[in-house]
Amino acid sequence: MSTNIVFLAIAMMLGDGLFQVVYMIIVTSHSFIKQKSKKEESSSVMTDCADPSSNVQIVNYDDQRRREYFEKDQIPNKFAVLGYVALAAACIGAVPALFPQLKWYHILVAYLIAPVLAFCNAYGCGLTDWSLASNYGKIAILVFSSWVGLDHGGVLAGLVSCGVMMNIVSTASDLMQDFKTGYLTLSSPLSMFCSQFIGTAIGCLTSPLVFWFFYKAYNVGDPDGSYPAPYALMYRGIALLGVEGFSSLPKNCLTLVIVFFIAAILLNFLTLILKQNETKYKIYRFVPSPMCMAIPFYLGAYFAIDMCLGSLILFIWELNNKKKAKELGPAVASGLICGDSLWGIPAAILSLAGVQAPICMKFLSASTNKKVDGFLGS
């Protein structure tokens, strides 16, 4: 059942992301054909925003200023394309030399499909503030481990291709989040890109050193040790699943994946149709996002509960004071996210100190709960 859940989540994410890719290409092409220049519209918006008495006009003015500042220091498209080609060429030369199980054409295919998956991840990260690069890495494991085959080192090939894919997809979402921050803070996108480049280069040096430190200092991978590395077993299991083919998947898994993939696309179509026929009630806002729906499948229900409570608080706040909710909502959200993340530090310290919670709460199935009650009764 758990395997089915992971594949269903991946199917919904891909369906939503691919729809947005195709929709973006269509809208952009249509925009370029219909309007080649918007300078007159830009100047008229600046003129209309002169009256400070309207909140809508002030927002438009702020957005216009941010857009102008963000677009004046753009990264040249040629530089981006050449940089990606150079990185792909370096990876094509280096990875097969380190891992002979992967050939140069495997890495080439990975770099050809990575931009689409990177867009899907960046889109999902923008909606949920949660990078799901690991999910797309699992897709790479299944594809390349099956392609290489068990007799030619398909397990190792799948794991290595997962690392390549995850680095590309994860870096893309991180960079888009940096651009979003730069847009809000009136920072140069070029400086944000340079900072990301420097940080990634430093990470290429420090990450292997940190891993080597843990690998030498601790018994990494020991189920009874301090660092059991459960995800290593899970990823290896996915690679073994990939080399065995679709026949090893759970019953009806492939059928459910196709159904959920199509359902994600249909939900996006429904949202698009309702937006085109928008009424004063804005019904399209109540159509769930497939990307957000997929996350609880993978992470668990607690994340969906947090999002639901946060949306409810914001909804009530907007009913009482829409202006303050719009101004202070991002600050409150940032505080909640930071608080939730920082709690991991004291939680880890308490865990290392051996502190046990005074109360333990678990939710069990009816059959399991019956067994527990029977055991306690005996």
Rank of each mutant, 00 (worst) to 15 (best):
V59P: 03
G126E: 02
P189Y: 06
I295G: 00
V95L: 07
L175K: 03
C125A: 13
M13Q: 05
F363D: 04
T206L: 15
Q64N: 14
D178Q: 15
D178L: 15
S173G: 01
M192S: 15
A90I: 06
C308A: 14
E40M: 07
F32A: 07
K275H: 09
N219L: 10
V287Y: 04
I202S: 04
Y227L: 14
P100N: 14
S29A: 15
H106S: 08
A301L: 12
F32C: 06
I139S: 00
L156E: 15
L336A: 01
Q74A: 14
L309N: 03
A89C: 10
P115V: 06
D174P: 00
G329N: 04
H106Y: 09
T28C: 07
H152A: 13
I198G: 01
L312D: 00
G225I: 10
E68S: 12
L350E: 02
I168E: 01
C360M: 13
E244Y: 09
L184E: 13
L127D: 04
R285D: 09
G221P: 11
P290T: 06
M12H: 01
F144Q: 02
S54K: 01
K78Y: 05
N369I: 05
F211H: 08
A80Y: 03
M291W: 06
L254V: 09
I238C: 12
A217Y: 07
A264S: 15
I25P: 05
R236G: 13
Y227F: 15
L336S: 00
A301D: 07
Q64L: 09
E327I: 08
G242S: 11
N167L: 02
G300N: 05
L256S: 13
C162K: 00
I141T: 07
G15V: 04
S289V: 01
F260L: 12
K275I: 14
Y218A: 11
S378C: 04
Q101K: 03
L241D: 09
V27G: 11
Y218P: 05
D151I: 02
L274C: 10
L266V: 13
P228Q: 08
I258K: 07
A88H: 01
V355I: 08
C360P: 00
F297Q: 01
I10Y: 07
V257Q: 03
I168Y: 01
L241M: 14
Q20P: 08
D224N: 11
L240N: 15
S311G: 11
I26W: 10
K34A: 13
D306R: 10
V21E: 00
V220N: 07
S173V: 00
K34F: 02
G154I: 04
Q57A: 14
L8T: 08
S341Q: 10
E71S: 10
